[in-house]
Amino acid sequence: MSKGLFEGALDVVVLDVDNEDVTPIEIYSALSRIAVAKKNRRFNLVFLTKLDHVKFYERYRDMISSNISLTLSIKRVRVESCEDALKNLGTLITGARIPIIVASEKCANLLKGFYNAEVEVV
């Protein structure tokens, strides 16, 4: 992702718009699976989320602080809805790499276009 930190790292977008559909443990589990499959331990993570700063980090604190085997660069983009998220996603993937998406079920229907664009959805 052009706005990430780690050059050559995997970019993972987490759609957390409704923030109850994707739990921290699911994200951690997805990251671990990707790490093994892609042999890459660096991730630029972008969360598209409705949560504000405090609620976001309270929710994901354990996942971050116990994530001892991976290197993470975390960005949070506040969105109001799946449509907003999709718009942001469009901007985010206008780069060299194609992101992996940890999807919220409620936004799944909006992601069909990305499947066609070879976006990997975990």
């Binding site: 706005k3 331990r41 994530n67």
Partner: peptide, 30 residues
């Protein structure tokens, strides 16, 4: 985490006024 590998890139981004990540966790592989 240990900062040597990431700090130069981060400062470069900050000086270029690029958007910065909020949190960087440097794992053992870095």
């Amino acid at each position: 985490g240990e900062g040597e590998r990431v700090v130069v890139k981060l400062v470069e981004k900050a000086l270029n006024n690029e958007e910065l990540p909020e949190y960087v966790y440097v794992g053992p592989s870095d």
